[in-house]
C-alpha cells in the first residue's frame, strides 16, 4: 500500500493555499498584460469616481439658472462653459455621470436577471419549454433594439425609469441566448450527472453546479451590454423620451446643444465627449475581460 500513498503525497499544504488562488491570479495577470483593457478599466473607474464624488467635485449647482451668464464659452470660472440657461456644464456632466451609470447598471441588471432565468430554464429543461422560450426570445430579437425601446416607452410614457425598463427588456435576448448555450454545454458534463445520480433537486443542480460554471461569459456580456445600454439611454433622452428637463442627462444635454451648434458648440461637444469616452471605456474593458476570462469567445 506504500505505492498508493506515493500517488497522493505530491503537494505540500503550503503549495495548496497558493494554488487555489491560481485561477484568479492567472486571470488578473492576463488582464494586466492587456494594456488597452487597462485603459478601458481606468476610464470606467474614473467615471465611477466622478459619479460618486459629484456632489463634492461639482463647482456649481447643476440645476441653478443664471440667465445673465448664459452661453458663456469655456473659461477659468466655467471650465466647460454654460448652457443657454446659464447652468454650469461641467457640474451638469458630473451629475449626469450618476444617471448614465445608473441607467447602464440597472437596465443590464434587469436584462441579466430575466435573461439568466429564461436561458437556464430553456437550456436545462429543453424540449417544449426550450422551444417556447427561445421562440419568444427570437421575436424580441427580431426588433432592432432602439425600435423595441421606442415601442416600450411609447406604451409606458417617457421617463428615465421607463428607459431603464425598456433597455433592460431589449437586453434580455442576448443574455438568454448566451446562458442557454452555456447551460447546454455544462449540463452534459459528468459532474452534473453525478450530482443528479446523488438525488439532488433541479434547483440545487442549477444553483450550485450550472450557474457558477457559466458566470464568465455572463460577466463579459454584462460589461459590454452596459456600454450599449448607456448609449441607447442617451439616444432615447436625446429624442426626448428619457430624462425630462431640467435633469442633467447627457443625451438630453446633447440634444439641447443642437440649437447652438454654431454659436456655442461647447454645449453639445462636452456631453458628446462624455458619452463616447464612457461607452468606449466599457467596450475596451469588456473586450479585455473576455480575453482574460473566456479565451474561446475571442472572435
Amino acid at each position: 500500500m506504500k505505492l498508493e500513498y506515493a500517488d497522493v503525497q505530491q503537494t505540500s499544504p503550503k503549495q495548496t493555499a497558493s494554488r487555489s488562488k491560481q485561477k484568479w491570479n492567472g486571470f488578473y495577470r492576463k488582464l494586466k498584460r492587456n494594456k488597452i483593457a487597462l485603459v478601458g478599466g481606468a476610464i470606467v473607474l474614473f467615471y465611477l469616481l466622478v459619479a460618486m464624488l459629484a456632489p463634492v467635485l461639482a463647482p456649481f449647482d447643476p440645476l441653478e439658472i443664471h440667465l445673465e451668464k448664459k452661453l458663456v464659452p469655456p473659461s477659468a470660472e466655467h471650465w466647460m462653459g454654460t448652457d443657454d440657461k446659464g447652468r454650469d456644464i461641467l457640474s451638469r456632466l458630473m451629475y449626469g455621470t450618476q444617471l448614465s451609470l445608473a441607467v447602464g447598471f440597472v437596465s443590464v441588471l434587469i436584462g441579466m436577471v430575466f435573461g439568466i432565468v429564461l436561458g437556464v430554464v430553456a437550456g436545462y429543461y429543453g424540449k417544449w419549454i426550450d422551444t417556447v422560450i427561445m421562440r419568444v426570445i427570437d421575436v424580441l430579437l427580431a426588433f432592432p433594439g432602439i425600435l423595441l425601446a421606442l415601442a416600450i416607452i411609447s406604451a409606458l410614457g417617457p421617463s428615465l425609469m421607463n428607459v431603464m425598463v425598456a433597455v433592460g427588456i431589449f437586453s434580455i435576448p442576448t443574455f438568454a441566448r448566451i446562458v442557454r448555450g452555456s447551460t447546454l454545454a455544462v449540463k452534459k458534463l459528468e459532474y452534473v450527472d453525478a450530482v443528479r445520480a446523488l438525488g439532488a433537486s433541479d434547483f440545487i443542480i442549477i444553483a450550485k453546479h450550472i450557474l457558477p460554471n457559466i458566470m464568465s461569459p455572463i460577466i463579459v456580456q454584462a460589461t459590454l451590454r452596459v456600454a450599449t445600454a448607456i448609449l441607447t439611454a442617451a439616444g432615447l433622452s436625446f429624442l426626448g423620451l428619457g430624462a425630462q428637463p431640467p435633469t442633467p442627462e447627457w443625451g438630453a444635454m446633447l440634444s439641447n446643444g443642437r440649437d447652438f451648434l454654431f454659436s456655442a458648440p461647447h454645449i453639445a461637444l462636452f456631453p458628446g465627449i462624455a458619452i463616447s469616452t464612457l461607452v468606449l471605456g466599457f467596450n475596451l474593458f469588456g473586450d479585455g475581460l473576455r480575453d482574460a476570462l473566456d479565451p474561446r469567445m475571442k472572435k
Partner: peptide, 13 residues
C-alpha cells in the same frame, strides 16, 4: 444506486 464515471477530469465540479 451510485455511479462512477470515466473521465476523472469532467466528473468533479
Amino acid at each position: 444506486l451510485q455511479v462512477i464515471f470515466q473521465d476523472p477530469f469532467a466528473s468533479l465540479n
